[in-house]
Nucleic acid binder design. Structure first.
Length: 261
DNA sequence: ATGGTTGCTTAGCAA
């Protein structure tokens, strides 16, 4: 099973690219973030024509997540259901075969000290509580999405410059570590230890050709799924050229059985 | 040099 997460920065602006990418790569599951459309407007028919089931949780203008799957999804949830008010479409979870897929678009946080940064930290805390309440680390679970946090210095092109900003802040990093402490590991880091591997590059300042990026999009998996993880990669090709999202797809592959290695 | 780009929505905001 191949699972992919991709912040497309508007599914309408990226529709042709996303359709072409799916046709080429044909993953079993594609988690999308920043679709920026209401559920009625999501271009579902074009993706269904490629053989995908389309599950969406969107809103006008901002945010929006979706999960495309080759197999019909079950156990769909669109909210934390933690009793707190929520207006942003940032969370969607489904089961595909025996794997629980959780698609998230974590708040960016804008500026440290802002209301939005407090919201980001609180949101990550709610996600941790969701895992505690609704999931178990012994299950096959993949938490996929734009986490808007670079875990370590090797995930940031200029750690000194980014230190203390919302994408590489000690409190945001600690909140991400708290998620992992529940029982998740970074699928990408199971297979790659080098720095300079990023999933997002600012549109400005020629950041992509200079590889001035951050690795903020992640596929985090429970230990039983980690044991099946046969590979992971970031598709830089999808970030190239005119009309690209500012994020690249992050991919991970899993065998049907636990690997003996 | 308080800059730069993209998308949504239409000039201002969010990323």
């Amino acid at each position: 099973m191949q699972i992919v997460t991709w912040n497309v920065n508007s599914i309408r602006a990226r529709k042709e690219r996303a359709l072409a990418w799916l046709t080429t790569h044909q993953p079993d599951v594609l988690c999308l973030q920043e679709t920026k459309v209401t559920d009625e407007v999501f271009p579902r028919a074009e993706f269904e024509a490629l053989g995908y089931h389309v599950t969406v949780s969107g809103q006008r203008t901002y945010n929006g997540v979706a999960i495309l799957s080759r197999v019909p999804p079950t156990e769909i949830m669109r909210r934390f259901d933690d009793g707190e008010e929520e207006t942003a479409a940032r969370f969607l979870t489904v089961s595909v075969e025996r794997v629980r897929i959780i698609c998230v678009y974590v708040p960016n946080g804008r500026v440290v000290g802002s209301e939005q940064f407090a919201y980001k930290l609180a949101w990550l805390g709610r996600l941790r509580r969701y895992l505690e309440c609704y999931c178990d680390p012994s299950q096959l679970i993949a938490l996929c999405g734009d986490l808007n946090v670079a875990p370590e210095a090797r995930d940031v092109h200029d750690p000194a410059a980014w230190q203390g900003t919302v994408l590489f802040h000690p409190r945001a990093r600690a909140a991400l570590q708290e998620l992992c402490a529940w029982g998740l590991v970074d699928a990408f880091r199971l297979h790659h230890s080098e720095g300079g591997m990023y999933s997002w590059w600012d549109y400005r300042q020629l950041a992509f050709p200079r590889n001035q990026g951050l690795r903020i999009d992640h596929i985090l998996v429970t230990q039983p799924l980690a044991l099946r993880c046969t590979g992971a990669m970031i598709d830089r090709e999808a970030r190239k050229g005119q009309g690209a999202s500012d994020h690249a797809p992050v991919m991970a592959s899993f065998s049907d059985e636990t690997s003996s290695g």
